[in-house]
Design a binder for these strands. Structure first.
Lengths: 128, 128
DNA sequence: CGTCTTCTCAGACGTTACGTCTGAGAATCT
DNA sequence: AGATTCTCAGACGTAACGTCTGAGAAGACG
C-alpha cells in the first residue's frame, strides 16, 4: 500500500485561506495574517508552505520588484470539487449520486436551502 | 499547526472495504482477501490495521471460540457522511449547501440521475 | 559609504503517521 | 508431542509535515 500524500495539508490550507481573502499577497502579508506577531521563523514557514503549494500547482507567484506576489490557482470551489471527487472515487466508484442523495436526504436543510436547491434542479432540468 | 491524523488511511480503507463485503469476517478471511496469497507478515499487517480501526471506533470484534470475528461499525455511507462533513467544515463553514450546489451544477448528471434527484427533492419538500 | 533591514533560496531537523514486520505465548489439530 | 494457527505487544523504516536556520542579494537611510 503506497501512502498518498494529502492534496492540501492543514497548515497549507491555512495559507490558502489567507490567499483566498487576499487575492494578491506577498509572503509577509500572508505570514502576518496566518501568524499574527510571528517572527522570522514563522515567515519562513509560510514561505515553505507556499513553495509546497506551488509544487502541487495550487498557487503561483510572480516576482514584483524585489519581492514575490502569490496568487491562488486553486479556489475554494476547486478544492471542494477535488475533495468531492476524491470521496466519490474512493467510496462510490466514482459516481456522485450517492453523495447527492446522502446530502439531500441526510443533511437537514432549511426551508430556504431546500427551495434554492429545488430551483437549481428545476433550472437544470429545463435546460435540456 | 497540529497535524490531524486521517480518519481512515489508504490501507485501513482496503481492510474496511473487505469488511463491507464480508460483514462478519475473521482476520484470516480479510487477509486472504486484501493480500491474496500473502504470508504471515501480511496477516499481521491486517491485524494491526484492524487494531487501529478499532481504536478509532470504526470496527468491533468479538472473540468466537479461539479466534476473533470482526464487524464494521462504520458503513460505507457513514464514511461518505464523515468525509462530506469534513470538507463542509473545513471549506464551507460547516454548511452543506455549497457542496450541493457544486454537485448539482458542476457534476454532469445523466438525465436519469437528474430525474431521480428531482424526485428526491420533491418528496422532501412535500413532507413539511 | 557602511550598516541595517528585508527579501529569497536552499536545506536541515524533529515528530508523527503509516505501512510493514517480528517474536513470544496460548490454543487447537493430528 | 509436534506442527499449526491464532492473539497480543511492540519494533522498524520511510515519508509527510510543520518548523526553523543560515547564506546571500537588494534596498533603505544615517
Amino acid at each position: 500500500m503506497a501512502r498518498t500524500p494529502r492534496d492540501v495539508t492543514d497548515a497549507e490550507l491555512e495559507v490558502l485561506r489567507a490567499l483566498w481573502d487576499l487575492p494578491e499577497a506577498t509572503i509577509r502579508a500572508l505570514a502576518d495574517r496566518v501568524y499574527p506577531n510571528g517572527g522570522a521563523s514563522e515567515y519562513a514557514t509560510v514561505q515553505k508552505l507556499l513553495e509546497r503549494l506551488e509544487d502541487k500547482g495550487h498557487v503561483a507567484h510572480r516576482s514584483e520588484g524585489r519581492q514575490n506576489v502569490y496568487t491562488a490557482r486553486l479556489g475554494r470551489e476547486d478544492l471542494v470539487a477535488l475533495r468531492l471527487r476524491e470521496t466519490a472515487d474512493s467510496l462510490c466508484g466514482g459516481s456522485f449520486t450517492p453523495l447527492l442523495t446522502h446530502l439531500v436526504s441526510g443533511a437537514r436543510l432549511s426551508a430556504r436551502e431546500l427551495r434554492d436547491l429545488r430551483r437549481l434542479v428545476d433550472s437544470l432540468g429545463e435546460r435540456r
